[in-house]
Amino acid sequence: MSIQHFRVALIPFFAAFCLPVFAHPETLVKVKDAEDQLGARVGYIELDLNSGKILESFRPEERFPMMSTFKVLLCGAVLSRVDAGQEQLGRRIHYSQNDLVKYSPVTEKHLTDGMTVRELCSAAITMSDNTAANLLLTTIGGPKELTAFLHNMGDHVTRLDRWEPELNEAIPNDERDTTMPAAMATTLRKLLTGELLTLASRQQLIDWMEADKVAGPLLRSALPAGWFIADKSGASERGSRGIIAALGPDGKPSRIVVIYTTGSQATMDERNRQIAEIGASLIKHW
């Protein structure tokens, strides 16, 4: 058993032996400061991975655009179909130039040979490839079927209504393609630790998130040596930015963190910096 498999397999085991986890309101002070700095709403939640207890939250039940963070949920739905014998990670999917949409750094290189379902999930999560996400959405029946999958998990909040890139429109008060921090954190925890997916599929999902290559300026920039993080970021119109993550010290995840912001006029660099500073406060007061 690899170190990674050891880590995921023991998450339920550690729940019975973990020390009490204490919240630190200092992080919420930073979240509120980020709102002031960005001139935008910020949603935040910090969840204990083992118990599911909410440690801190700010606007946990307000809607925010999901942006590309939905791609983790999408690959969770794909893995659920794999577990049920309805899909194979090794199945190759062929597509054409007409299928390519904006920001497809991986799929645009494989027009001649296509990509496997496994490769598409990797591209969608680690590189946020939009065509990969659309191709995967097609395999499960489209955005409405992803919403149905989430409903069956008990998440009646999170919804996907459109495809890439239209889902990134982020119109104020538009509930399409949105979630709430509390709903996203709970759903992510179920995917990573619950019985919905097999152990192998849970491991695969967290491996893809751990290999994320496009979230460096966010929480990863504040991470001390030896800490673990598996994450997925997102960005969209109207100053929207977000990240969902499982992270913790000693090389294993122990908390879920979800951060969303929307409605800012700030630059992408400034949005990144504010999220990184929230992460730094979280780690300092861990």
Rank of each mutant, 00 (worst) to 15 (best):
I3G: 10
I3L: 15
I3S: 12
Q4S: 14
Q4H: 12
H5R: 12
H5T: 14
F6I: 10
R7C: 08
R7L: 14
R7D: 09
R7T: 12
V8G: 10
V8C: 15
V8K: 15
A9E: 06
L10A: 13
L10T: 12
I11S: 07
I11F: 12
F13V: 13
F14I: 15
A16H: 11
L19N: 15
P20T: 07
P20S: 11
V21R: 01
F22C: 13
P25A: 03
E26K: 08
L28M: 07
L28Q: 04
V31A: 05
A34T: 06
L38S: 06
L38E: 05
G39V: 08
G39R: 12
A40D: 07
A40Q: 06
R41E: 06
R41A: 08
Y44A: 00
Y44C: 00
Y44D: 00
Y44I: 03
Y44M: 06
Y44L: 08
Y44G: 00
I45S: 05
L49I: 15
L49A: 06
L49R: 01
N50D: 15
N50S: 15
S51C: 04
G52V: 02
G52E: 05
K53M: 13
I54S: 05
L55V: 08
F58L: 06
F58C: 08
R59Q: 05
R59P: 10
P60I: 08
E61T: 13
R63C: 03
R63P: 04
R63H: 06
R63L: 07
P65I: 02
P65K: 05
P65R: 03
M66C: 04
M67I: 03
M67T: 11
F70L: 02
V72G: 00
L73F: 06
C75S: 04
A77C: 14
L79F: 01
L79G: 01
S80V: 10
S80H: 15
R81Q: 10
V82A: 10
D83R: 01
D83Y: 01
A84G: 13
G85A: 09
E87W: 02
E87M: 09
E87T: 05
Q88E: 13
Q88K: 14
Q88H: 14
Q88A: 12
Q88L: 12
L89V: 04
G90H: 15
G90L: 11
G90A: 14
G90C: 11
G90T: 12
R91E: 04
H94G: 08
H94D: 09
Y95V: 06
S96Y: 11
S96R: 14
Q97Y: 13
N98E: 14
D99T: 10
K102E: 11
Y103F: 07
Y103S: 07
P105A: 04
P105S: 04
T107G: 02
H110D: 02
G114D: 13
M115I: 06
R118S: 15
E119Q: 13
E119V: 01
S122G: 09
A124T: 10
I125L: 12
I125T: 03
I125A: 00
T126I: 07
T126K: 04
T126P: 00
T126D: 05
D129S: 00
A133V: 00
N134T: 02
N134D: 02
L135R: 02
L136M: 07
L137A: 02
L137Y: 07
G141E: 04
P143R: 12
K144D: 14
K144Q: 14
E145V: 10
T147D: 06
F149E: 05
L150M: 09
H151R: 15
N152T: 13
M153K: 05
G154R: 03
V157G: 07
T158G: 02
R159H: 12
R159C: 03
R159A: 03
D161E: 05
D161G: 03
R162Q: 08
W163R: 07
E164R: 00
E164V: 01
P165G: 03
P165W: 02
P165T: 10
E166W: 09
E166V: 08
E166C: 11
N168A: 08
A170G: 14
A170D: 15
P172I: 09
P172T: 10
P172G: 12
N173Y: 12
D174Y: 03
D174G: 05
D174T: 04
D174I: 02
E175V: 13
E175Y: 11
E175A: 11
R176G: 05
R176H: 07
T178V: 02
T179K: 00
M180T: 15
M180A: 14
M180N: 15
P181V: 04
P181H: 00
A182T: 11
A182R: 15
M184L: 03
T187D: 12
T187L: 06
L188A: 04
L188G: 01
L188V: 09
L188S: 03
R189N: 09
R189H: 13
L192I: 15
E195V: 04
T198S: 14
T198Q: 12
A200S: 14
S201L: 05
Q204A: 11
Q204H: 10
I206L: 15
W208G: 00
A211G: 11
A211S: 13
K213A: 14
A215P: 03
A215T: 07
P217H: 09
P217N: 12
P217D: 12
P217R: 08
L219N: 02
L219Y: 00
L219D: 02
L219Q: 01
S221I: 08
S221D: 09
S221F: 06
S221C: 09
A222T: 12
A222F: 06
A222C: 14
L223F: 13
L223Y: 01
P224C: 01
P224T: 02
A225C: 11
G226H: 07
G226C: 04
G226R: 06
G226V: 01
G226K: 07
G226P: 02
W227S: 00
F228S: 03
F228A: 04
F228L: 03
I229T: 00
I229M: 05
A230V: 02
D231Y: 03
D231V: 03
D231S: 04
K232T: 00
E237R: 09
R238P: 12
R238K: 13
G239D: 04
S240E: 09
S240L: 03
R241F: 03
R241T: 07
G242L: 00
I243A: 01
I243N: 00
I243P: 00
A245G: 05
L247P: 00
G248R: 00
P249D: 03
P249S: 03
P249A: 04
D250V: 06
D250R: 10
D250F: 08
K252S: 11
K252Q: 12
P253K: 03
P253R: 04
P253T: 04
I256M: 03
I259F: 02
Y260I: 05
T261M: 15
T262I: 06
T262G: 13
G263N: 15
S264N: 11
A266S: 14
T267H: 10
M268R: 05
E270K: 09
E270A: 10
R271T: 13
N272K: 01
A276L: 07
E277G: 08
G279S: 07
A280S: 11
A280R: 14
S281Y: 10
L282F: 03
L282S: 01
H285S: 06
